[in-house]
Structure formats: structure tokens, C-alpha cells
Design a protein around this nucleic acid. Structure first.
Length: 901
RNA sequence: GGGCCCGUAGCUCAGAUGGUAGAGCGCCGGCUUUGCAAGCCGGAGGUCCCGGGUUCGAGUCCCGGCGGGUCCA
């Protein structure tokens, strides 16, 4: 059977179901009613469940009913996975329950945690974020996907299509008590995550309440091929089912209960009568416009027509409520994301978190309320922690803090952006592309905001559609190079995988092995102690020697389990016994740094919180770096606590154990915290466990006890990016060396200050303070003395031509200061004041012209030049300098100039 | 890792073209007011991030470093 063929379920046929084609959407469906025309799903037919409740059940009751029903049918209930898909490198968020089990379990490479199993998985999808609110609950960014999954392998068949439909049918009719004749099964095709298969979508009263997917194909080079493992992938919409059962006016009423009213009144929004809301929901369900992204306002006008209401009345009533609905949804999503350890940033899942937070802040702004977003999020936390998610409450403080920080940031950007835009508009009445780029590039102000602000000032700004491309182009962005596979990659299959001695004994530095191949210009051995580059640990170097030859190993690479040694000399012939010697000092240093990385990461988690994840790491011989996620900068005190905890862990001399586990077992035992160094693309994981302290999946070489690390010193912590802090540290010998050096410098300073090392900072500050005071005192003195002197000098003058001139010889104040004094003291008297001040082998000069029409700058330029100096200035003041011995002639030249004119 | 921007008084920031370092807020003192809010007058407060260079002269120009922001990988 191929994709798109009729899906014939005997169970349904026996019950009298017939296959029909919907004249509206053209899709096939199964129904008990032979006279039925359409498929029954909105928008082919409107909702018919609103106001016709079947049972007054809460969301939790519906969830519990489902899970225990599936348990009674032989399924094992398992707990939810995080909403951040840390185990996937192709997804940021958990968007469906099956995401939990891709790719290894669905591919049959790793056994599932239970089989069959049932779960209620909170899922986040941001694709339809614009529709949340206007569709009255049909779209949500966060929802729970209840599911039962069965994984059918060659070895074990669990159940397939018939049983799946039976299970759904029984659940719908017995547990939900939906009359059988109201259930319609629509045929469809489901694709996602590299898998595909036919599906059935049960429709009840206009609403699709589940999707029953029979996953039996996987994508290979753009084509679908049958899988060995066939997976039952069901998804039951908890929120939709609850809505259907209750018949509430909107989905939000069904999901959020009394939070709807809490939010409504908190946001100062008028209550809308239920009848109107219900009618609105029903009518909106048949309109496709929204789905196609048409403007909400246009949609509302059509609904107003259908309901025969004034459209501005409807707009006024509904628009604010939609925003409250969107806020209900977004704040819940934010709460879950942050509880599961998301740190807002400008990349990856961090960006998605920020996106939702900023959207919410914008909604608050549009509603014109002053409420802090964190208050609303906190309400969600307490609401949901009482409804099956107690883990949210533990993260409350952090969640509130992060949301507050993000709000402050957002407001800061708005403020700054507005200021800059105003400045530009004021100075040139328009904004061009260059301005937009600068604003975005250097100030982080998005063009949409610029448009808004400029619009308020009456300036129209064009934002090109390809704006973000332009920015990228400016940054000469290089495409990330696809991991280049060497040309000999297929050749490798001929050889046996290398025996990895460095895993058996990380301290093994010498070994004997046999050359089993030459690949490219590299040597392949049957076993090796050389560690190849990987996991942020650089490759080993060392020496290979054999009878009649010797070569340095300059780098080591590993492909497909074969370790290749690159030599800088002749290659030993095939079959040669070689003796390998790893550069011990470097290797040991890297091992220490590597284990230290794990130690520091855990210390950071314990000090800062469980949202801390490794973002990246680079190990070196002298110094290593560990980048961690954190939402603000680390304080010096926090850093000290991290360092202390790390060093205490070293001193506890904990065993470091390494072993292999299947992914499912490892995840069950340790959780997703394992995936710190990125996603490992293998069914089995190498576990590095610092006993009783930290566990990670890691392929690196590690010391066997933490005591072997030696001292750990974090030199500095700095924000390298939004939401990412880089810790630069040393471990072992380099740490000790640098600490010793730093301490001897400190000792030296303490000695010169004549204080103990403990007081060196205080003494230094005091000395600086004293220095400052003394400087001030000296300057004040000098000024007083000079002032008195200048006052005397200015009383007299020499008449040269039409000018009265005075000569002030400065001794203890700077020329600048002298000029200021003269300027103050000369008052309104007509005078040309020449100031001179010796400075090394030159004399600084200034001429201040007071009350005469004379260009001081020109005068100084010409006169200084004529005696071998230089200078210039403006109308009132000229300044320059001349050689010391030319002072007398300089004064003569000035006299001559003034006298002659 | 790379691009761009910034670093000036306790804080927020001005300081075309290189030429006597400024404003607002805050602080101190005085005046005005029944008091408050405020207003008026005066004052203290500066290693213009650090180091080098160009120049007669650098907060300003150039190079390097440190610190911060922002964008792109």
C-alpha cells in the first residue's frame, strides 16, 4: 500500500462506515451516515459543539481519563519530555509527542522506554503564532499532545492500524461518550521529522480531535522508502477534546478556566457576553481567510456581516479580548520554556523565547496597561503547577527574574531606538537605508520599530523586503561549511575499526601496534593510544618509531571508527610493528582541562541554576574555555563560589567513571542533562560520570579521579553573546604556575605599599585617594600663587603701537590653567597678554587678545614660525611653542608685529 | 571567530573643522515658602579607560590593549 491509497480499516467497515469524498475540500472520509455530504471538519462545516457540552470535565480530568484508559489497555504511562528538544540537533522545540522518540527509536536503533506506551507531552509550535487569539482557541502555541505509541520491529509486533483505530474508537465512545455516529474519520498523509505515513483524523462536531498516524516510510534522498520499524504515532489534542466536551464559548475558556477572567480584569478588558463569543467562535470556524494570513480586521468585517452586527462594535468588543487570549497562551508557553531551562538570546531556541516575550510585551503595550509581564507569567506558573506540572513552581523565581530582565531590555531598546530615530529625523527629516542598517546593526533596533517611531513623527520609512539579507551580506557571512568528508572515506570500510586504547586506559602513553593501512598520507594502526580531535579536545601529538624509522605524529583524525595518524616523515610500511609515544605533558594537561570543564559546568549549575547548559567548549594546554547559557552577567561573588565549589570537588577526589549505555537507558537514568556537549549522533552513548556529582555524554579523555585535575582557576567570565557567558580557566600545572606568578606580583605590590597582601587593595585605594587629594591641593596652591602674581602683572602694561601688552611668565600652573586665570582677571580691559611657560627644551606660548580687533591665531602662527616654532589658534586665543633659547627673540618679533601695524 | 559602535563629573549624556572640558539630574551651602512640591543664587566634584604614535598642541586623528554594547557566523 502506498501513500494516498484508501485506508481501509476492517473494524470501521464492519461497524458500517462508508468512504466518501468531501465536495468542499476534496478529501476522503469515513462516516456511518450514508447521506452525509461533507467531511464535517471546519471550515467545510461550522463547529457544532459550542454550547452543547457533553461533560463538565476539566483539562486534568480529561488527561487523566485518557492516560488511565490507555494504561488499562496495556500501555505504560511515561512522563513528559522537556519542551526544549535537547536530544535533537534538527529541532529546537518539542513540537509533537513523537519528537521524543526520533530519530533513533523510530528507526529501530534504540529500544523505546516502553512499548506500547502512553504519554501527554506539552508541545510548542510557533508557526501559527499570529493566529493565536483570533481563532478563539483553535490555534495555540502550547498544547498537550496525548498519545499512545507502538513501535513494531521485526523482532516484536505490538499493534498496527486496526488496533489503533479500535483504541481511539473505544476511547471516544466509552470514555468521552461521543455518540458513534458523530465520529467521522478523514484520510490524510502525515510527514515530519524525516518520516511519513498515511493517517486518519477523527472529526467530531466540526473539530479534529486527534490524528492517528501510521508511520511506515522514511525519507531517503528525497524519496520515501518503507521502514523496518512501523510506528503507531497518535496525537490527541487535549485542549480540543476538553473544549469539545465542555462546549465552552472559546478554547481558552476550556483550557484556562478562571484564568480567563483573571487576565481579562487584570488587563482592564470589558467582559463580552457568552452568546456573542460563542456565535463569533462558530462563525470564525468556517472562514479560511485567517488561515491564509489575511488581515484580522477584514475577517472581522465578514463575521460582522454574517452575524448582522456593526463591525466597529465587534472590533471594539473582540479585538482587546483576542489580545488577552494571545497573552494567556504566550505567558503559558513562556513559563514552560523558561522552566525547562531556556535562556532568551538572539539565536536558536533562545531567540524563540525572546520572540514570544517581546510579542507579549507588545500586546501589553497595545492594550495600554502597565502590568509587568512577569506577573502574568507567575500566574501561569502557579496555575499549572497545581495542574500536573509541579516542576514549574521550582523555577518561579528564575522565571520572574528572566522575564523582568527581558522587559527592562525591551524597554531600553525602545527608549534608545526612539531617541536615535528622533535625532536622525530632526537633523535630516528622513531616514535612509543606511540609517536603518546602522540602527539595527549597532543598536539592535529593528526596522519595524524605526518605522513606527518615524511614523509618529510624520516620516515615512521604506523597509526593503530583503532587509535582513542586506545585513547578512554586509557581514560577509560565510556559509557554514558542511563537514567535509575526506576523499578516502569509502576506502576506510576495507579496514577493521581501530581499537581505542585511550578509552581503556586514558593514562596509557606508550604502546605497540601494527600498521594495517595507508590512507591518503596517513597511517592506520590496528590499535592506538593517540586521541583524535573531537569534543572540543584537540588531537594528540607524539612520535611513532619502528626499526629503521621514526616520525612525528602531527595530528590524529577519526572517521567511521578508524583512527588516522598524520606524520611529518616517511610512512612506516604495511605490517610494520611500531612503537607509539604520546606527548604526555600535553595529553595530561588536556585531560585535566577536560574533566575540569565538567566540574566547572556542574559548579555553575549549582551556583547559578539548572538553566545553565554548556554552549560550547574548547580545551587547550594552558587555558580552556567553557561557554555556558545564563541570562545576565556573572557577579564576582558568584564566580568565586563557582571556583570554590569546583576546587572542593577536586579535593573530594571523586572517581570519574566512563562506560557505554544505550540512549534510552542513559536518558532514563540521568535525564537530558547528558547532552551538554551537543547531540551525539549514535544509538549508544559514552557516559562520563563524576561519581555523585555530574554525568555527561562525552567522548573525551578524562582523569580517573577528580584529584588528578589539580587546582582550577577561572581567570575571567565575560558575556560573549546575549545569554552566553564564557569562562576562561586553567587547570593543573598551568593554573598553579599562573597563580604563583600572580601571587608574587601581588606580594611585590604589597611590599612597595608596605602593607600585608590582604590589605593591598585597601591600601592601594587609599594611596590613590591620597594622590588625588595631593594633586588637587597642589593645583589649588599653584593657582592661588599664580593668580596673585598675574593680578599684579596685569596692573601694568607696555604700550606697543596701539596695543597695551603684558607678559605673564607661568611657573607652576599649566598653560591652559594660566589662560583661564588671565581670561578671568583681565576682565574688560583692552590688553594683549602673552603667556609663556617653559616645558622641557621648549617654551609653550599663548597670546590672548582682549578688546582688540586682532587675529590672535594668525599672530601666533606667524610669530612662532619665524623663530622656528609652530602654533595657531582662533580669533581670541593663539597658542604654540618655540625653542627655549628663542624666547627673547619671540617677544621681540611680537612687539615688532604689533608696533608696525 | 569576524564587522560596526561606545568608554568624558556619582548618574544620563553634550563636546563641526585638533586650540581655555560642558549641560541636566544628584550632592553641599544660602535665599524664597506656614509646610510640601518646587523655584532662585552659589559651590564642590575630571588620570576625558590604558599605552604608544602623528602634531607646536590630542577628549578629538592613527595604531595597540582593556572594558561594554550590537549584529553576523
Amino acid at each position: 500500500m502506498g501513500l494516498g491509497d484508501p485506508i481501509e480499516i476492517q473494524f470501521l467497515i464492519e461497524r458500517g462506515y462508508v468512504r466518501k469524498k468531501c465536495p468542499k475540500c476534496g478529501e476522503y472520509f469515513w462516516t456511518l451516515d450514508p447521506d452525509r455530504e461533507t467531511c464535517g471538519e471546519s471550515p467545510c462545516e461550522p463547529y457544532s459543539f459550542i454550547g452543547r457540552g457533553i461533560a463538565d470535565k476539566s483539562l486534568e480530568e480529561v488527561r487523566e481519563d485518557f492516560l488511565s484508559f490507555m494504561e488499562s489497555k496495556g500501555h505504560t504511562r511515561i512522563g513528559r519530555y522537556p519542551v526544549i528538544a535537547r536530544w535533537r540537533d534538527d529541532l529546537f522545540l518539542t513540537s509533537a509527542s513523537i519528537v521524543d522518540f526520533q530519530p533513533f527509536i523510530t528507526a529501530g536503533l534504540v529500544p523505546p522506554p516502553a512499548n506500547p506506551l502512553t504519554i501527554s507531552q506539552p508541545c510548542i509550535r510557533l508557526k501559527d503564532v499570529d493566529k493565536v487569539g483570533p481563532t478563539m482557541g483553535r490555534h495555540l502555541t502550547i498544547f498537550e499532545m496525548m498519545a499512545h505509541h507502538a513501535f513494531n520491529t521485526k523482532e516484536r509486533f505490538v499493534y498496527w492500524k486496526e488496533r489503533t483505530v479500535e483504541l481511539f474508537h473505544e476511547y471516544a465512545t466509552e470514555v468521552l461518550r461521543i455518540p458513534e455516529e458523530e465520529i467521522i474519520y478523514k484520510e490524510g498523509i502525515w510527514e515530519g521529522g524525516g518520516n511519513a505515513g498515511p493517517d486518519l483524523e477523527p472529526i467530531v462536531r466540526g473539530l479534529e480531535i486527534a490524528t492517528l498516524v501510521f508511520m511506515e516510510y522514511r525519507e531517503e534522498n528525497g524519496k520515501y522508502v518503507p521502514m523496518d520499524t512501523k510506528v503507531v504515532d497518535t496525537g490527541y489534542g487535549l485542549e480540543r477534546i476538553t473544549w469539545l466536551l465542555r462546549g465552552d464559548p472559546t478554547g481558552f475558556h476550556a483550557v484556562y478556566g478562571d484564568l480567563v477572567d483573571t487576565f481579562r480584569s487584570e488587563l482592564g478588558i470589558e467582559r463580552v457576553e457568552e452568546r456573542l463569543l460563542s456565535r463569533y467562535s462558530e462563525v470564525s470556524s468556517i472562514l479560511r481567510e485567517l488561515e491564509r494570513g489575511r488581515k484580522v480586521e477584514a475577517l472581522r468585517r465578514r463575521i460582522a456581516e454574517i452575524l448582522m452586527l456593526d463591525s466597529s462594535y465587534l472590533e471594539e468588543k473582540i479585538a482587546p479580548l483576542e489580545k488577552a487570549f494571545a497573552l494567556l497562551d504566550h505567558t503559558k508557553t513562556i513559563a514552560f520554556m523558561l522552566a525547562d531551562g531556556l535562556v532568551p538570546s538572539n539565536v536558536n531556541e533562545g531567540y524563540l523565547g525572546r520572540l514570544l516575550i517581546r510579542r507579549s510585551l507588545k500586546l501589553l503595550k497595545l492594550l495600554g496597561v502597565e502590568t509587568n509581564l512577569s506577573e502574568l507569567v507567575a500566574r501561569q506558573v502557579s496555575y499549572w503547577s497545581g495542574k500536573g506540572f509541579p516542576e514549574l513552581k521550582e523555577a518561579l523565581d528564575r522565571i520572574v527574574e528572566i522575564v523582568d530582565i527581558e522587559q527592562a531590555r525591551y524597554e531600553e531598546i525602545l527608549r534608545r531606538g526612539e531617541k536615535i530615530v528622533r535625532g536622525i529625523v530632526k537633523s535630516k527629516r528622513k531616514l535612509d537605508l543606511e540609517d536603518l542598517i546602522t540602527l539595527y546593526d549597532s543598536h539592535g533596533v529593528p526596522p519595524e520599530l524605526v518605522q513606527t517611531v518615524a511614523g509618529k513623527l510624520g516620516v515615512n520609512v521604506e523597509v526593503p523586503d530583503n532587509f535582513y539579507e542586506l545585513i547578512a551580506g554586509r557581514h560577509e557571512s560565510r556559509k557554514p561549511e558542511a563537514p567535509k568528508l575526506p576523499p578516502f572515506i569509502d576506502e576506510l570500510d576495507r579496514y577493521k575499526p581501530t581499537k581505542l586504547l585511550y578509552y581503556q586506559d586514558p593514562y596509557l602513553m606508550e604502546f605497540d601496534a601494527t600498521v594495517i593501512g595507508h590512507v591518503g598520507d596517513m597511517v592506520l594502526l590496528d590499535e592506538t593510544a593517540f586521541y583524535p580531535e573531537g569534543g572540543g579536545q584537540p588531537s594528540d601529538v607524539g612520535v611513532l618509531s619502528w626499526s629503521g624509522g621514526r616520525a612525528e605524529v602531527v595530528s590524529v583524525e577519526k572517521y567511521k571508527g578508524r583512527v588516522l595518524h598524520r606524520l611529518n616523515g616517511p610512512l612506516p610500511p604495511l605490517g610494520t610493528r611500531v612503537h607509539g609515544k604520546v606527548d604526555e605533558e600535553r595529553r595530561l594537561s588536556r585531560m585535566r582541562h577536560h574533566t575540569a570543564t565538567h566540574v566547572i559546568l556542574e559548579a555553575a549549575r549549582r551556583v547559578l541554576g539548572p538553566h545553565v547548559w554548556q554552549w560550547g567548549a574548547q580545551k587547550g594546554d594552558e587555558e580552556s574555555r567553557l561557554d555556558i547559557t545564563h541570562y545576565k552577567s556573572i557577579t564576582p561573588e558568584e564566580l568565586e563560589r563557582i571556583e570554590l565549589l569546583a576546587n572542593e570537588t577536586v579535593m573530594r577526589n571523586l572517581p570519574v567513571n566512563t562506560f557505554w549505555l544505550l540512549r534510552t537507558d542513559a536518558e532514563r537514568r540521568y535525564g537530558f542533562i547528558l547532552y551538554q556537549g551537543g547531540v551525539v549522533p549514535d544509538p549508544a552513548l559514552r557516559i562520563v560520570e563524576i561519581q555523585g556529582y555530574n554525568v555527561q555524554a562525552c567522548g573525551g579523555t578524562h582523569v580517573t579521579r577528580t584529584g588528578d585535575i589539580g587546582p582550577i582557576k577561572v581567570w575571567r567570565a565575560r558575556r560573549i553573546q546575549d545569554g552566553v557567558i564564557r569562562l576562561e580557566f586553567s587547570a593543573g600545572v598551568p593554573a598553579a604556575r599562573r597563580l604563583i606568578k600572580a601571587h608574587s606580583k601581588l606580594k611585590e605590590i604589597a611590599q612597595s605599599l608596605g602593607v600585608s597582601e590582604e590589605e593591598v587593595d585597601k591600601a592601594f585605594k587609599a594611596a590613590m585617594e591620597e594622590l588625588k587629594d595631593l594633586r588637587r591641593e597642589i593645583r589649588r596652591h599653584a593657582r592661588e600663587i599664580e593668580e596673585a602674581k598675574i593680578r599684579e602683572i596685569l596692573k601694568e602694561f607696555e604700550k606697543v603701537g596701539d596695543y597695551r601688552i603684558s607678559h605673564v611668565e607661568l611657573a607652576s600652573v599649566s598653560l591652559d590653567e594660566g589662560v583661564k586665570l588671565v581670561d578671568k582677571l583681565v576682565g574688560s580691559e583692552e590688553r594683549v597678554v602673552i603667556l609663556t611657560k617653559p616645558s622641557g627644551d621648549r617654551v609653550e606660548v599663548a597670546v590672548l587678545v582682549n578688546g582688540y580687533d586682532l587675529m590672535a591665531g594668525d599672530l601666533v602662527r606667524e610669530t612662532t614660525k619665524s623663530v622656528g616654532g609652530g602654533g595657531g589658534g582662533d580669533q581670541r586665543l593663539g597658542r604654540g611653542s618655540i625653542p627655549k633659547e628663542k624666547l627673547e627673540s619671540f617677544l621681540e618679533v611680537i612687539r615688532a608685529r604689533l608696533g608696525g601695524s
